[in-house]
Amino acid sequence: MEWLVSLVIGVMTASGVYLVLRARTFPLVLGLTLLSYAVNVFLFAMGRLQVGQAAIIRPEATAYTDPLPQALVLTAIVIAFGMTAFLIVLALKARSELGNDHVDGLIYVAEEQANNKNESKSGASS
C-alpha cells in the first residue's frame, strides 16, 4: 500500500511539474492544482498510512490516527483553493492587460507575433 501511495504522489508530482513548465497560464494553474494534491497527500502521509483507525476520541478506541498532519493538510487544502483562485484571476488580469496568456517572457511573445504576421502575410500572398 505504501508503494502505491508513493507512486500516486510521484505521478501527480510529475504531471504537475510538467504542466507548471508549460508556457500558458491555464495549464500552469492545472499543474499547481495537481502539485497541491501531491503535496497534501505527501504531508498527510507523513502521519503514516492507517486504515480503519479511529479519528475521533472514543472510550473503546485503543489507537488513533495522527491528527496533526490532518489538521495541517485541512488548512492547506483551503489555502490552496485561495491560491488557485488568486492565480487564475491574476491570469485573467494578465490576459486583459497584455492581451495574451503567455508566461514565458515578452521576448517569446514578440517572436510569436512576428511569426504569426509572417504566416498571415505568406497566406495572403499565396
Binding site: V5, S6, L7, G10, T13, A14, S15, V17
Partner: peptide, 28 residues
C-alpha cells in the same frame, strides 16, 4: 521538461517511500 518532471516525480516518490517505510515518534 519531461526529464525534469519525471526526475521530480521519482525523487518525491522515493522520498515518500523512505519516510513511509520507517517508524516514527509522533508529537500528536
Amino acid at each position: 521538461d519531461l526529464i525534469l518532471s519525471v526526475t521530480a516525480g521519482v525523487s518525491v516518490m522515493m522520498l515518500a517511500m523512505a519516510v513511509l517505510s520507517r517508524d516514527y515518534a509522533p508529537i500528536s
